[in-house]
C-alpha cells in the first residue's frame, strides 16, 4: 500500500498524533486530521513510492497558519537499489532512510532505484547538481539480486564518481544485509571497496558489510521474502547506520 497511496504523520511537540497509510487510494478527498483546538501541528506527507502523482492539493481552514518547517542546511543523501528503495517495507516511514533521518532530525533525499541496475554514475552526477552539501551520503552498493559481473563492471567507476562529487562529506557504503544465500557478489563488492580505499586513502569512505548487520538475528524476523528486507530488518539496518553516523554527525 505504500506503493499507491499517500502516507501521513501528524505530530505535536510531545508525540505522534496520527499515522495513516494508503490515504486516497480509493477516494478523491480525504481528511488527514481534525483537531479540536488550534495547536500548530507538524504534518509529514509521503507521496506514493511507485506510482505517478498527477495532481495533489492541500485544503486547510481559512484561518489556518501554514508554517514551513526549518530546513536543515545539510540533508542526508541516500543512493542505492531495492533495499534503499524500501522494497519489503510496509510503508515509507519504515524505510531505513526515514528512520535514520528522523533520528538525526534532518531532511533527506532518497534517490534509490527500484531495480538492480543502480550503480550508474549518471545518477550521482545528476544528484550532485541539485544537492551540493549533504551532511553525509549512504549508498547501497550491493544487493542480493545484483550479479557479480555487474559489480565488477560498474562499482569502481561508481565509487570514483560518488567520492568525487561528494568529496566534502563522509560516505557510508552499505551492502544489503544477507544471510549467506549469495556470496560471490558480496565478495566481489568487498574486494573492490578495499582496493578503492587503498587507492584513495584521502577519500572519506566507510563500509558497512551487510554480512554483519543481521548477525545473530533469525532471518525470518528481518526479511519479507528471499531478498527483501522487511520493516524489522530496516530498523536493524537503520540502527547500525545510526551508530556509525553518530560518530561524525555531531561535528557537522
Amino acid at each position: 500500500m505504500m506503493v499507491n497511496g499517500i502516507t501521513h504523520i501528524v505530530r505535536n511537540r510531545q508525540k505522534v498524533l496520527k499515522i495513516e497509510c494508503a490515504t486516497g487510494r480509493n477516494k478523491e478527498t480525504q481528511t488527514l486530521y481534525q483537531q479540536k483546538g488550534n495547536e500548530l501541528l507538524d504534518y509529514e506527507i509521503y507521496c506514493p513510492v511507485k506510482n505517478t502523482l498527477t495532481h495533489a492539493s492541500l485544503l486547510v481552514d481559512d484561518e489556518a497558519q501554514m508554517v514551513a518547517p526549518e530546513k536543515t542546511d545539510a540533508p542526508i543523501l541516500f543512493f542505492g537499489g531495492p533495499t534503499t528503495f524500501g522494497r519489503g517495507c510496509t510503508f515509507p516511514h519504515g524505510m531505513y532512510s526515514s528512520i535514520v533521518a528522523r533520528k538525526f532530525s534532518r531532511d533527506y533525499y532518497n534517490l534509490a532505484m527500484y531495480n538492480s541496475r543502480y550503480l550508474e554514475k549518471k545518477y550521482i552526477s545528476t544528484a550532485a547538481k541539485a544537492i551540493q552539501n549533504p551532511c553525509f551520503v549512504a549508498a547501497e552498493i550491493c544487493s542480493i539480486p545484483i550479479t557479480k559481473e555487474y559489480i565488477a563492471q560498474k562499482l569502481d567507476k561508481y565509487l570514483e564518481k560518488l567520492t568525487e562529487c561528494f568529496c566534502r562529506c563522509p560516505i557510508l557504503l552499505v551492502s544489503q544485509p544477507y544471510d549467506g544465500r549469495k556470496l560471490d557478489n558480496y565478495i566481489e563488492c568487498g574486494k573492490i571497496v578495499r582496493a578503492f580505499a587503498e587507492k584513495h586513502p584521502e577519500r572519506n569512505i566507510m563500509y558497512l558489510d551487510g554480512k554483519t548487520v543481521f548477525k545473530g538475528i533469525p532471518t525470518d524476523r528481518v526479511t519479507l521474502s528471499a531478498y527483501l528486507t522487511n520493516d524489522y530488518g530496516n530498523m536493524v539496518l537503520a540502527d547500525r547506520i545510526i551508530k556509525i553516523a553518530e560518530a561524525f554527525i555531531s561535528t557537522i
Binding site: K15, V16, L17, K18, C21, F91, S98, D231
Partner: peptide, 14 residues
C-alpha cells in the same frame, strides 16, 4: 522508534 513500530499508531508492523 514510535513511527516505524506501527502502520497507523495502532496496528503493529513486524
Amino acid at each position: 522508534d514510535q513511527v516505524a513500530l506501527s502502520i497507523d499508531n495502532v496496528h503493529y508492523t513486524d
